[in-house]
Design a protein around this nucleic acid. Structure first.
Lengths: 209, 209
DNA sequence: CCTCGCATGTCACTCGGTGTCAATCTGCAT
DNA sequence: ATGCAGATTGACACCGAGTGACATGCGAGG
């Protein structure tokens, strides 16, 4: 299991026995799922096959993941929080285009580090309609979070001013475009450089008074 | 059945008997579905209830609509084609911000005309996760179409230059923001005015050299 | 009148997802 | 070690969306 953000090293964590067991099951499930789904395609694999490979019951699967799609998309959830937190952490006097660019660079960098597995997952998501739909839902959620954070940051009312929502939407659009390009190039393009180019395009709108 | 774009009046069309019958069934289905879904909520209504109300079999329902969500979202499909066609019809020397704004105004105006029914449908979509997901899929599709049309219009390669995809994404983002605002205001805000304001924000990025 | 084709209904089936309950395991106190 | 409380799991029944196969009915044209 590669795509997980372990906080520290394994030396002596404060995790209980049950906690580790839970993660073990979760990891075996995602491992088995990714293996099968990437190999046979999303629709050709049933949940029963996945749980058989992982050695747990179907009921347990749905205790860990809300849906079959979630096994693949779930690791993206953390990224959303990462974007928002990074945006909140940027200096208040930084122009929106710069702050948002750094925020988006968080998930981009995360993809770049484990490019092997990340690329496979991203490509699977982008070319499977059911997964893509879930991914778009996540994006919409990120947009909401960024909208709220931007409004707070700029002292605007997100229900009055269109700017926060539009700026958040543009940032997410940029991220989406970068991901598509990165996926289409099979990881050959540098995701960070793509991000910079994308933000160079949208910056004039982000920083307009 | 209100939300349909009948080409002309009923005087003496060149449609066969079977054709009219098909549309009749389709209309009764959507009518029954919208009635029930708007009243009881999306998840609380089963397809069996809908078909019972419409007086057809479940199998027939799925011959007309690919999914339960499609009954609600389907009428949005035409809008996508409308946006693209309008963009293609705009004068070639028009700056992207103006051409895209007019393109987006097509569905906006369509909503404004039959605001009663349209508002109910939009609100149902935006606050029902399953429907919202389908709606986002549609938006992604529109974005693809606008990307291709923009690239063609500007003589750019959509696989090389990031601009077409970003511009299309910004336009769709603007539309989405307008729709949300319009929905939140229960139709009180003027959708056309909102569209103009939204494009005023993103225009600096759209028209940057 | 007959038949060809199309839309529909019926039925059985798959699969994703959930509620329920009993069995099991972890942690903790005695 | 023992026993208890809470959480986790498996097994099973169940619901609803969606599909495949086949038979039937109805309209159009010879």
């Amino acid at each position: 299991m590669a795509l997980r953000y372990h906080a520290g090293v394994s030396s002596r964590p404060e995790v209980t026995m049950a906690e580790r067991k839970r993660r073990l099951v979760s990891d075996e499930l995602t491992e088995a799922a990714l293996q099968l789904l990437a190999g046979k395609g999303f629709d050709a694999v049933t949940v029963d096959e996945i749980v058989a490979a992982a050695g747990v019951s179907k009921r347990t699967f749905f205790r860990y993941f809300a849906s079959k799609e979630d096994v693949v998309v779930q690791f993206l959830a953390d990224l959303g929080a990462g974007i928002r937190d990074e945006l909140a952490a940027r200096p208040a006097d930084e122009p929106p285009s710069v702050a948002l660019r750094h925020a988006v660079l968080v998930p981009v960098a995360a993809c770049g580090e484990q490019s092997d597995r990340a690329l496979a997952v991203v490509q699977l998501i982008l070319r499977t309609p059911a997964l893509h739909a879930r991914f778009l839902e996540r994006q919409a959620q990120w947009r909401e979070e960024l909208t709220a954070e931007l409004a707070h940051r700029l002292g605007l009312d997100a229900d009055t001013d269109l700017y926060p929502r539009l700026a958040a939407g543009m940032a997410v659009t940029a991220f989406d475009a970068v991901l598509h390009r990165w996926s289409d190039s099979d990881g050959a393009d540098d995701a960070r450089a793509l991000t910079d180019r994308a933000f160079a395009v949208i910056a004039p709108a982000l920083d307009a008074v």
